[in-house]
């Protein structure tokens, strides 16, 4: 059951990180609406397939438009939505399986085009909805239902990958801090180019990493999540690379390049300098 739909019966497990991401999404879209003076219907949430994608049905309050598509294809779907109506705020919500396994081929082209959309990736390091198979971010040697002898692959390092592919805004967040996360998402929405906010969003059923992220006072362990130092310069690509190489889960803006034109900006130039012909003129150009 959701706020708007009494018959909707999808449930996230208690404690699921995606609750926090949903809240952050709601904050971010509200902030965007205030900033741009637009109604909620100027927002389109394009969802991948997996637990994370159900965010689109569970948003509370005023409803944005949504498109819950097919597995792995949220980015090209978002491209279509955005380039058809550039005034819209187009946000992708997808998980590590959807975005980094079946959908990985779509990250590079959007980065190269600098497509002006924001992708919020909820990384729980597992396929939750299909009940616990290994995902690209599952750690090596982890036993899951699809890796009974331990995962035999190195995990993908998402931030490293985004930086290498040329994503022009890369932020890293944590689902338990929705207010902080919302700021990173809002900034991504405002960024005129391709932005990814990668969120550690634990799966309490199949891969509960809360303790790893936060640390445990009782056990005397330190959390892997840490605030990015204030002296980090996100416009410095080398600094971003160094930060990522430190490991752990940095929280904040990792990298930001505002100097590259977006695809929309480039096309605006083309439109300025080239005139369209109508069908009659085109037919005429083939006259005998």
């Amino acid at each position: 059951m959701s706020g708007k739909n009494p018959e909707y019966d999808f449930l996230w497990c208690p404690g699921c990180g995606d609750f926090g991401v949903r809240r952050a999404m709601e904050f971010a879209m509200q902030d965007w609406n205030i900033e741009r003076e637009t109604p909620m219907t100027h927002n389109v949430v394009v969802a991948g397939i997996g637990c994370s994608g159900n965010t689109v049905h569970l948003l509370e309050g005023e409803q944005p438009y949504g498109f819950h598509g097919i597995h792995g294809r949220s980015l090209p779907l978002a491209l279509g939505v955005k380039m058809a109506r550039e005034e819209l705020n187009v946000v992708v919500v997808a998980g590590d399986g959807d975005f980094l396994s079946i959908g990985m081929e779509h990250i590079g082209p959007q980065a190269a085009r600098n497509l002006n959309i924001c992708a919020v990736v909820m990384d729980n390091g597992i396929y939750g909805l299909t009940k616990g198979q290994s995902s690209p971010t599952t750690l090596e040697n982890t036993v899951t239902s699809s890796t009974p002898f331990g995962k035999m692959e190195s995990p993908v390092h998402p931030l490293d990958l985004y930086l290498t592919l040329g994503v022009s805004y890369i932020a890293s967040g944590y689902s338990s801090k929705p207010r902080d996360l919302a700021k990173l998402i809002t900034k991504g929405m405002m960024h005129d180019g391709f932005s990814i906010v990668h969120v550690s969003s634990p799966c309490t059923t199949y891969n509960d990493t809360y303790e790893i992220l936060k640390g445990s006072r009782a056990k005397g362990t330190e959390g892997t999540a840490y605030d990015i130092p204030e002296n980090h310069d996100p416009t410095d690509k080398d600094a971003a690379r160094d930060l990522i190489a430190r490991g752990g889960v940095p929280l904040g803006v990792v990298y930001e390049n505002t100097t590259r034109p977006s695809l929309g900006q480039r096309l605006a130039k083309v439109r300025e300098n080239n005139q369209a012909k109508d069908a009659a003129a085109l037919l005429n150009s083939f006259s005998i």
Binding site: V44, V46, F67, G69, I70, R73, P76, L77, A78, L79, G80, V81, K82, M83, A84, R85, L88, E105, H106, G108, P109
Partner: peptide
């Protein structure tokens, strides 16, 4: 497009946007 998969999902997205 970078592939036919991108092409089809892209035009579906644009169709959703009313184009």
């Amino acid at each position: 497009a970078s592939s036919e998969i991108e092409a089809i999902t892209g035009i579906v997205g644009a169709g959703f946007s009313g184009k």
